[in-house]
C-alpha cells in the first residue's frame, strides 16, 4: 500500500423512522436510539467518517431522515454519507442540502445506472458512493450483485458493476459481502481485493467484521482504504481508538484519536 494513504474507520448506523436500529451499547448516552447523539459520539471518539443507512420502508419516514441529516450537520463536523432510498437527483439534493457530504445509491443504480451520472453531473463524483451488495456464486465463478438486503439476485457481476459505476461517475465504492454480513468472520478479502484492484477510486470494505484484526486485513489484504463496521462499535466491544491502534500496529497509517 502507498505510504501516503491514510485508512478511514467508518461506523455505520442503520436508521428506521429516525431511530437507530438495534440498541447501541454506550452506557452514558441519554438516548441510545438517537442517530444524531450517536453520530456526535463517534465524532468525539475519533471516527473518520460516518454512514447512515436509512432502512425506512415508508416515504414519510424518509422525510424523518432529512431531519436526522439536518440535525447531524449542526453537531457533527466529520464527513457523513446517507444511503437508502436515494432514487433520483432530487433525493440526493435534499440530503446534500440538509448537510450530508455524500449519498450512496444501491438498488436505484442497478435499476437505472444513469442515476449515478445524473447525481455526479450536478454535485460531483466525490459525493456519489455506489453501494454494492455481493454474494459468491460458485456455479458462475463470480460474485453476483444482490438487492434488497441480499434477497434479490441480479444478473450483474459485482466486479464489472463496480467498474461500470465508476465509469458513470461514482467516486467511491461501498462494498458489502452478503456472505459475511452478520457472521463476524471477517471481510470477504477475495471480493474486496477483486474490486479494489479493478477500480481506481476508494473502496470501503463492509460485512463480517468480528474483531479489530479483521479491520486491518480489509486494508492490508483487501486493498480497501476505508473499513466500515457496525456491531463491534455499537455494542461497546471496541472503541474507535482501539481499532486504530490495531490497524496502526499492522503498519496502516491512521489519523490518531484525540
Amino acid at each position: 500500500m502507498n505510504s501516503d494513504i491514510v485508512a478511514r474507520v467508518i461506523p455505520c448506523l442503520d436508521v428506521t423512522n429516525g431511530r437507530v436500529v438495534k440498541g447501541v451499547n454506550f452506557v452514558d448516552l441519554r438516548d441510545a436510539g438517537d442517530p444524531v447523539e450517536l453520530a456526535a459520539r463517534y465524532d468525539t471518539q475519533g471516527a473518520d467518517e460516518l454512514v447512515f443507512l436509512d432502512i425506512t420502508a415508508s416515504s414519510d419516514g424518509r422525510d424523518t431522515m432529512v431531519d436526522v441529516v439536518s440535525r447531524t450537520a449542526e453537531q457533527v463536523f466529520i464527513p457523513f454519507t446517507v444511503g437508502g432510498g436515494i432514487r433520483e437527483v432530487a433525493d440526493a439534493r435534499k440530503m446534500l442540502r440538509a448537510g450530508a457530504d455524500k449519498v450512496s445509491v444501491n438498488t436505484a443504480a442497478v435499476q437505472r445506472p444513469e442515476v449515478i451520472s445524473d447525481i455526479a453531473a450536478e454535485f460531483g463524483a466525490q459525493c456519489v458512493v455506489c453501494a454494492i451488495d455481493a454474494k459468491w456464486d460458485a456455479s458462475q465463478n463470480r460474485w453476483t450483485v444482490y438487492l434488497h438486503g441480499g434477497r434479490t439476485a441480479t444478473e450483474l457481476d459485482a466486479v464489472q458493476w463496480a467498474e461500470r459505476a465508476v465509469s458513470l461517475g461514482a467516486g467511491e465504492i461501498l462494498l458489502t459481502s452478503m456472505d459475511r454480513d452478520g457472521t463476524r468472520d471477517g471481510f470477504d478479502i477475495a471480493l474486496t481485493k477483486a474490486v479494489s484492484s479493478a477500480v481506481n477510486v476508494p473502496v470501503i470494505a463492509s460485512g463480517g467484521v468480528g474483531n479489530l484484526q479483521h479491520l486491518a486485513e480489509g486494508v492490508t489484504e483487501g486493498g480497501a482504504t476505508g473499513v466500515l463496521a457496525a456491531s463491534i462499535f455499537h455494542f461497546g466491544d471496541h472503541t474507535i481508538a482501539e481499532a486504530k491502534d490495531v490497524m496502526s500496529a499492522h503498519g496502516i497509517r491512521v489519523r490518531p484519536v484525540g
Binding site: G171, N200, P202
Partner: peptide, 10 residues
C-alpha cells in the same frame, strides 16, 4: 501514481 481523488484525512 496515487489514487484520485485523495479522499482521506491527511
Amino acid at each position: 501514481s496515487v489514487q484520485r481523488p485523495q479522499m482521506q484525512w491527511n
